[in-house]
């Protein structure tokens, strides 16, 4: 055996052991998901047998129960509308402002930035109670708009921050050329800057959707029976006398499915957003 093949053998073993360790970690990470899937397919009584087991049955009863007996379609629709609304509003507010912020110097620039970054430091509980009172004064309490407006505070700030960073790294020459060609600033932004930053916009949209979809405390305090979202609706599976693990699991699967799917499909953009703060 020559030196090189011994070295490559060592490398291979090292890589294999790294992968094995990672697979173990992955098992820990995936376990709750597997449990959720298994429980959503189990019969109610089998959940209470000792020792507890995974995959005791494969029935879709729990799914049909939640669709027939609970108003899950309404909750899903509310969750979708609120998430989409937040996404659109966040983009409308965050993208043009992020662009302008990267292109112009002005007094108070720092104050605006600090105010926007402060949203991240603000505990939700601080804002949610006054927000509730304010929404009531606006006559919006209990509507989807109430949740959209508060979700957008957090998401527009993130979009703004992300987009201003991205536009900062785009070359200004193209827009300047367009300006000289007689394009207005608005057209230069829409024609040149926006197409170049599509990946960033996808990232921002994805984050706004996920954060809004996963929100609980705002929906808890701001919605009415007609605007209940999916996470909030899930709580009613835990009645006073019946432990509804299997129904909860069916709804849980429905709740996590779209966000997991989106994050896997748009993985590149999702990771881009996660790492943005760290690398910048």
């Amino acid at each position: 055996m020559n030196v090189i093949s011994r070295q490559s053998l060592l490398d291979k073993t090292l890589l294999a052991s790294r992968i094995i360790i990672l697979l173990l970690i992955l098992a820990f990470i995936a376990f709750p998901v597997i449990w959720l899937l298994s429980t959503s397919l189990a019969s109610r009584i089998s959940m209470f047998k000792i020792p507890p087991r995974l995959f005791t049955g494969f029935k879709l009863d729990n799914y049909s129960y939640v669709f027939e007996k609970m108003e899950i379609s309404k909750w899903i629709m509310n969750s979708i509308l609120i998430s989409l609304g937040t996404m659109i509003l966040s983009l409308l507010l965050g993208v043009p402002s992020g662009y302008a912020f990267s292109r112009v110097e002005f007094k108070g620039k720092k104050i605006l930035l600090i105010m926007i970054l402060l949203t991240r430091a603000l505990p939700t509980i601080v804002i949610v109670m006054p927000f509730r009172i304010i929404m009531q004064n606006f006559g919006l309490l209990g509507t989807r708009w109430a949740v959209i407006l508060i979700d957008t505070v957090y998401n527009a700030a993130f979009t703004f921050w992300l987009m201003s960073g991205l536009f900062e790294s785009l070359p200004k020459e193209l827009e300047e050329a367009a300006l000289i060609d007689g394009c207005g600033t608005v057209r230069a932004f829409i024609r040149i800057a926006v197409p170049l930053s599509i990946p960033g916009i996808i990232t921002a949209a994805l984050f706004a959707f996920i954060l809004s979809w996963n929100d609980f405390i705002f929906a808890l305090t701001l919605t009415s029976p007609d605007t209940t979202t999916l996470p909030l609706g899930m709580l009613s599976t835990f009645g006073i006398l019946q432990q509804g693990w299997t129904h909860m699991a069916a709804m849980g699967m429905i709740a996590i499915f779209p966000v997991i799917l989106l994050s896997l499909l748009l993985q590149r953009y999702y990771i881009g957003g996660l790492t943005f703060g760290g690398v910048k």
Partner: peptide, 10 residues
């Protein structure tokens, strides 16, 4: 009459 089922605390 729309029925909204909620847990005790909620």
């Amino acid at each position: 009459v729309k029925v909204d089922i909620l847990g005790y605390v909620e």
